[in-house]
Design a protein around this nucleic acid. Structure first.
Length: 212
DNA sequence: TGCCAGGCCGGGT
DNA sequence: ACCCGGCATGGC
């Protein structure tokens, strides 16, 4: 394990403790949440998921069958609701056609192969694909998000303009390939980012990573 | 009250 | 291969 990354992990874990990610009662719910949370506050996503449950349609079949416009209205609170309703449809179509809407079958697929298949779905980009693999399937892939990028570039671990795959590779090359570690590491980056590394607070005052 | 949130796509250069 | 506008709600 790379020492600098080890220090970062230990400090974040000491400051915040285990994050228990991903909040969600089933792998399918995690998949849905991964789409709904694109560039969106998690609180808004929770409301949308609650609505889907309330309407009794938080299942692959129900989302497949429901009219697009009705699905849009149910996920309204998550923002970009027309776009996201379509993306959910794309995801469940893939899920049903390739794996009979069975998460066991989907995650039995070779991880890299599945990652490429997820990336081929309209509306599923690298972060959403990796979130599904890691948090719904417990597959060892590192999730990179805006917070991760901001935190590591502020702490000078990588160039500011590094792209998604570069940052992902940085972590996957230097950490043991362990889904539980990747899970906690990413969740802690989000927690740290929300607390100390917002866009408008460049000084990161009292950030646990200061001085590394 | 404007800025931001656990992105991604499509069109233009 | 990048760059940018669009997509949209709710909290602070």
């Amino acid at each position: 394990m790379n020492k600098k990354l080890d220090d970062i992990f230990r400090r974040m874990f000491a400051a915040f403790g285990p994050q228990h990610w991903w909040p969600g009662e089933s792998p399918f719910e995690v998949m849905v949440g991964a789409v709904l949370t694109q560039n969106t506050n998690w609180g808004n996503v929770e409301r949308a998921i609650g609505r889907l449950k309330q309407e009794g349609i938080l299942s692959p079949r129900a989302i497949y069958e429901i009219p697009l416009s009705l699905l849009s209205s149910y996920v309204q609170s998550a923002g970009y609701y027309n776009i996201k309703a379509g993306r959910l449809k794309n995801l469940v179509s893939f899920f049903a056609e390739e794996y009979e809407a069975d998460t066991e079958k989907m995650f039995a697929e070779d991880t890299e192969t599945l990652r490429q298949k997820l990336l081929a779905i309209k509306g599923i980009g690298p972060e959403t694909a990796d979130s599904i693999l890691l948090y719904a399937g417990h597959k060892p892939t590192f999730v990179v998000d805006a917070y991760t990028q901001r935190v590591i570039s502020r702490h000078l671990l990588i160039a500011e303009d590094a792209d998604y795959e570069e940052i992902r590779a940085l972590f996957m090359d230097r950490l043991p390939c362990d889904a539980a570690l990747f899970n906690e590491f990413h969740a802690l980056f989000v927690k740290l980012g929300k607390t100390y590394c917002k866009k408008k607070s460049p000084l990161c005052q009292d950030c646990p990573l200061n001085g590394l």
